[in-house]
C-alpha cells in the first residue's frame, strides 16, 4: 500500500521456557516462585509476530514497526539486550506485571491506551499484531480485546501467513481444525493478527540494528509508564503443579518381537 503500514506489535515477556516453574503465593495473588530471578524471553509467538512484522515492514516501503511491551522495567531492559539486535523497531514500554495470572482485560486496557497514545499512528494503516496466545496466560484474549478497544473488527487468530495482494488487499492464512488453514481476504487495514509460528526463522543478531534500536529503547524504558494490572474479578481457588507421577512399568528384558506384539495389541485394543 502506498505509504506503507503502521505495524504495532504487542509482545510480552515470559520466563525462559527451559526454566523450572512452580507456583507461589504473591502479595496480589498467584505468582511464580523466584519470578524475578527467572531469565525472561520474548513470548515465543509474539517473537514470530515481531519478526513477521519486521519482514512485512521491509517489503512495504514507508512502513514502521512499534513494539508495545509490558513487563517489569528491569526485565524489559534485559530482554532488549537480546532482542534489540534482531529487527528494527521503536519501543513503547509499560512498566507493569508480566505475570500470566493477571486479567487479560486489564492488560488489554493498558496496551490499548498505550497504542492510542503513540504520536502520528494512522489507524487506517494499522496492522495490530501479536502472538495468538502467550506462553504465560495462554488465553488468546488480550489481542482481541485490544482490537475491540481500538474498534477493529477484522481480526484473525492463529495466523501463519499474511501477504499483500496486488490490489492492496491482505490475504491471511489462519489455523483451523484438522491441520488446515482458513484463507481470508481483507480489503484494507486496520486489522488484528494473532500470529502462530509463520515461516520465518529467528533473524540473526545484527549489532548495527542493536546500536540503532538502543537510541530509542533506553529513552522509552526511562519514560515507561508504571501500570497496575491485577487479577480483576478472578479468584484463584488454587494453583498447583499437576500430579505427574505415573507408576511406569519398565520393560527391560523383552525381545523386539515381544515388545512389538504388545504395542500392536495395545494400539488395536
Amino acid at each position: 500500500m502506498s505509504g506503507g503500514y503502521h505495524i504495532v506489535v504487542c509482545g510480552g515477556i515470559v520466563p525462559d521456557p527451559l526454566q523450572t516453574l512452580e507456583p507461589a503465593v504473591g502479595p496480589t495473588g498467584p505468582a511464580l516462585r523466584n519470578e524475578m530471578m527467572l531469565p525472561a524471553v520474548l513470548d515465543p509467538w509474539a517473537g514470530h509476530a515481531l519478526f513477521e512484522a519486521a519482514n512485512l515492514a521491509k517489503s512495504q516501503p514507508g512502513s514502521k514497526v512499534w513494539w508495545v511491551s509490558m513487563g517489569p522495567k528491569a526485565k524489559l531492559q534485559q530482554l532488549m539486550m537480546s532482542m534489540g539486535q534482531k529487527v528494527p523497531f521503536e519501543l513503547v514500554a509499560l512498566d507493569g506485571s508480566a505475570s500470566g495470572f493477571t486479567e487479560s482485560a486489564e492488560v488489554a486496557a493498558a496496551l490499548a491506551e498505550a497504542i492510542s497514545s503513540i504520536p502520528d499512528l494512522d489507524q487506517s494503516r494499522l496492522l495490530l499484531i501479536g502472538g495468538w496466545e502467550s506462553a504465560s496466560r495462554g488465553a488468546g484474549s488480550t489481542l482481541q480485546i485490544v482490537g475491540e478497544r481500538l474498534g477493529i473488527v477484522d481480526q484473525f487468530q492463529g495466523v501463519d501467513e499474511v501477504s499483500v495482494q496486488e490490489d492492496g488487499s491482505l490475504k491471511l492464512l489462519e489455523r483451523v481444525e484438522g491441520g488446515k488453514h482458513q484463507i481470508s481476504v481483507c480489503t484494507a487495514p486496520p486489522i488484528v493478527v494473532g500470529w502462530a509460528t509463520g515461516k520465518l526463522p529467528e533473524p540473526p543478531n545484527n549489532p548495527q540494528i542493536g546500536m540503532m534500536n538502543m537510541r530509542t529503547v533506553m529513552p522509552a524504558l526511562q519514560r515507561a509508564k508504571a501500570v497496575q494490572v491485577g487479577t480483576g474479578s478472578l479468584n484463584f481457588v488454587s494453583v498447583r503443579l499437576p500430579e505427574q507421577r505415573r507408576s511406569t512399568r519398565i520393560v527391560k528384558d523383552a525381545t523386539v518381537e515381544e515388545i512389538a506384539q504388545e504395542i500392536v495389541e495395545w494400539i488395536k485394543d
Binding site: 531492559q77 539486550m81 549489532p207 533506553m218
Partner: peptide
Amino acid sequence: MGSGTVTIWPG
C-alpha cells in the same frame, strides 16, 4: 544498561 552509557549484548 540502565545508566545508558554502555551497551551489553548477550548471545
